[in-house]
Design a protein around this nucleic acid. Structure first.
Lengths: 333, 333
DNA sequence: TTGATTTTTGCAACCGGTTGCAAAAAAAAT
DNA sequence: ATTTTTTTTGCAACCGGTTGCAAAAATCAA
């Protein structure tokens, strides 16, 4: 039924090892036998079984891609980049959806059963105990979009959320806003905490008192809308820094539904610069996170970790930048 | 280093077969040895290797999930549902990104190397030769969101796009529109062709002449916007049926940017009912595709195909429905 | 031509499980 | 207590590859 190494070997009149070697980069085979093997396998339509190879080599070419937010379109961009970049390197993503999962052991189990070569945790909202659990199970793990901190037990590739918070504060002040609020993502997410803390400290440093701080319950549109309604119930504000573009869109729609004009009555600054932020219905000024850089770098890192698990702990931080669009009033001259 | 069957067997004082059987549903083991095995593997932290099991059983529990559109957020909803539903059944999705891929053999290669148990092609824009190539490579394959047609060589789960096109026409006429245009997705997609053809035939049956027909070059926002600009250059229309919600949003924004009010100057009817369609910035009237039903059904089908590859060819069609929101003027009384 | 050196090859064991088969043990029937 | 039947167990082969090692073949040097 299915063509195996043995069939090819017989047809080519060589040993099984010879066939195996013909398919192994840098193995010791003469040009003559390689040609014979190639011919035979072409005629038979042979393609080697990665499963069998995995068993022998203890390498599966599978990378666990762990995510827990399938509501935010930014993650479609993330998956797109990951799948393509992994594919190009001959690796395959094994997608693990941790929405509503609370027990790290389950996920460890899943990934270990498939013997993944490495794990990339691609989210900023998963509790650190998950990546730590993978680490403890002896898998090479990289936390992409994770928190940047000293002495982290896992490799991190991401951004400096504190610096980004400060950048957001500077941007709003530069645009002349005074009554500034923060509308963050879920409060237990480290990204939210850091963005908030950088933002608040920078305002304080300029002697501007924060007008309000609210947190959305999730990184999605509905939660943004709800949080904005809560905020509107409080005192007047003239600008809001949102912890995420999607949340920001929810907030903007809530503001408009309450008769507020953007940016005349109220300014918005988002975070991420997802594709949709450029849509004219939002035209969102935002802080861009260099997603492709983070993704590529996290792949490089996890790949190198496979060959050298004891590699020195590393955190790679990429700079963010402000993207000016239409949700902030023009700069003071 | 890693705990194997043998280690557990030794510790439990039984044979390797006994351990294997303890982990196999319905195998012949006494309660006593099962307990011994459980205890030993708990103490050792054993978890069986699916790779090794796959080699022996010729079942990998991997399902190839083939997609080619990572720009349309509807696919994030699709991935979410697939990953969770597969996960619940002890299966894992192997995500294959076919953006820009033109050679079916490449994808066949990939999936065969990993010995996937089955393949779900989840897209309406992939050329049929791809799913046929999988089929020819002897993999159980289901085309979700595929074209419904007699004598299809692969199993299909989806909707009747012709009927949906007619439903769209009826809806627009019911709302009193007369100068109606069609703004489709890519013209070579079967879904586009069928929606167009059902739509046009139904208008003709009511003696309404179609005002214009244009096609977006991709199922995404930018393409929708461009196509709308093209359409605006032609004669006046008062309502548009778009072949996809995302395209529709692009078109709506283009219309608004040209000073048109929705639905007073121009009405829009979308397709899919993605989450975003309910956002107040669009509040899109649309035709709902029962995505969860299609996904669950396609999983059931591919799973049953694994055990019975010769199963009679089947096409499962789910009904669509109209979701009335705010982009069509109110019904005539 | 002969001997030394390098390259290529095949054997056989191994990766970590599953499973058909026959023997052993347990349970039921006589 | 003995025989028959049923259940449980271990042996050994197998799934489809890889790889260390020693033998064989090819190449080079003298």
């Amino acid at each position: 039924m299915v063509v195996t190494l043995k069939d090819v070997a017989e047809r080519a009149g060589v040993s099984r090892s010879a066939v195996s070697r013909a398919y192994t980069e840098g193995a010791s085979v003469s040009e003559k036998t390689r040609k014979k093997v190639e011919k035979a396998s072409r005629e038979l339509g042979y393609s080697p079984s990665l499963i069998a190879r995995s068993l022998a080599t203890n390498r599966t070419k599978l990378i666990g891609l762990v995510a827990n937010n399938f509501q935010n379109p930014i993650f479609l961009e993330v998956f797109d980049l990951y799948t393509r970049a992994l594919q190009e390197r001959g690796l395959r993503p094994l997608l693990v959806n941790l929405t509503n999962e609370t027990n790290p052991e389950h996920s460890v189990q899943m990934l270990r059963q498939y013997n993944v070569d490495g794990v990339i945790v691609a989210t900023s909202t998963l509790q650190p105990r998950f990546s730590r659990a993978f680490k403890n199970a002896n898998m090479p793990v990289v936390h992409a979009f994770g928190r940047f901190e000293q002495g982290s037990p896992v490799h991190v590739v991401g951004i400096d959320n504190l610096a980004c918070g400060r950048m957001a504060a500077d941007t709003l002040m530069r645009h002349g806003y005074k009554k500034i609020a923060f509308l963050g993502g879920p409060q237990m997410a480290t990204s939210t905490q850091d963005r908030a803390s950088g933002f608040l400290s920078q305002l304080k440093a300029s002697n501007i008192e924060i007008a309000d701080v609210v947190y959305a319950t999730a990184y999605n549109y509905d939660a943004g809308q709800e949080a904005m309604l809560e905020l509107l119930g409080n005192q007047q504000v003239d600008a809001i820094f949102c912890g995420d573009d999607l949340i920001c869109m929810g907030a903007m729609d809530a503001a408009r539904n309450n008769g507020l004009a953007i940016p005349d009555d109220i300014g918005f600054l988002g975070f991420n610069d997802m594709h949709m932020s450029a849509w004219s219905a939002y035209n969102l000024s935002t802080i861009r996170q260099p997603t492709p850089d983070i993704i590529l770098s996290s792949i490089e890192l996890v790949v190198s970790l496979v060959d050298d698990p004891e590699r020195a702990m590393e955190t790679r931080i990429f700079p963010c930048s402000v993207v000016e669009r239409g949700t902030l009033k023009p700069l003071k001259p």
